[in-house]
Nucleic acid binder design. Structure first.
Length: 218
DNA sequence: GCGACAG
DNA sequence: ATCTTGTCGC
């Protein structure tokens, strides 16, 4: 199943108008989402931790068939489903979600973090390891057309481009991400990525059941 | 036409 | 993202 680029673009352009910029409510629980692949199988992981002590609040996984290819600026059409399926299994719902990828620092102001935030109608923050769109001016990324600030560069084991997904403010997003920097990684995202790697090994051993069945977490 | 291009 | 182990350096 390829990917109808024209249709996908229209979806992004329309939903981009639903992105909301609001102060981030008090965060008690924060979650990190990530997706890994083994052939055409997508392995999604969601890890929720308590802001207070970073203790594990909950975790969930998803195992689905990957059907959409990766096309720059359309990452959500490939990874949103694996992420959502894992997220929905979380019993401890987070106050905010961290996503691997950009939020509004996107050509159409609708990266995967924004897509998730609009779909769930809750706070999301995009954290990417490299730039996708915009011009880097010091520790900020601005839109070359409007000059608007789209993201801020945060240092945590290398450059991290932090942008609002939805239902958050850039300053609040940056503050939260900086607070979660541990050992050169953003804790919740590192935890989700680690879980993803454990899933890959389990999957290769045939120790993971295909989604709709059991607790696909190793 | 050429270069850029999250994961 | 994924293909892939050990090795040099602090």
């Amino acid at each position: 199943m390829p990917l109808n680029i024209e249709a996908a673009r229209r979806v992004q352009e329309r939903l981009a108008g639903r992105v909301v910029f609001l102060p981030l409510p008090p965060v008690e629980i924060v979650a990190g989402l990530d997706v890994a692949y083994v052939g055409d199988t997508a392995l999604g992981a969601a890890v929720a931790v308590r802001m207070a002590d970073l203790s594990l609040a909950d975790r969930a996984c998803s195992v689905t068939k990957s059907v959409v290819p990766y096309v720059p600026t359309f990452l959500a059409f490939r990874e949103l489903t694996p992420m959502l399926r894992a997220y929905m299994k979380l019993r401890a719902k987070p106050d905010v979600i961290l996503v691997d990828g950009h939020g509004v620092a996107h050509p159409r102001r609708f990266g995967i973090a924004s897509h998730l935030g609009v779909v769930l109608g809750k706070p999301t923050i995009g954290v990417a390891k490299s730039r996708l769109y915009g011009v880097e001016k010091g520790d900020v990324v601005v839109d070359p057309e409007t000059g608007e600030v789209l993201a801020k560069v945060v240092n945590c084991g290398g450059k991290r481009y932090v942008s609002v997904g939805s239902h958050a403010t850039l300053s609040d997003a940056v503050r939260l991400v900086e607070d979660l920097c541990r050992g050169g990684d953003i804790y919740p995202l590192k935890a989700a990525h680690d879980l993803t790697q454990v899933m890959k090994k389990a999957w290769r051993r045939g120790a993971l059941s295909h989604d709709e069945h059991g607790d696909s977490c190793p």
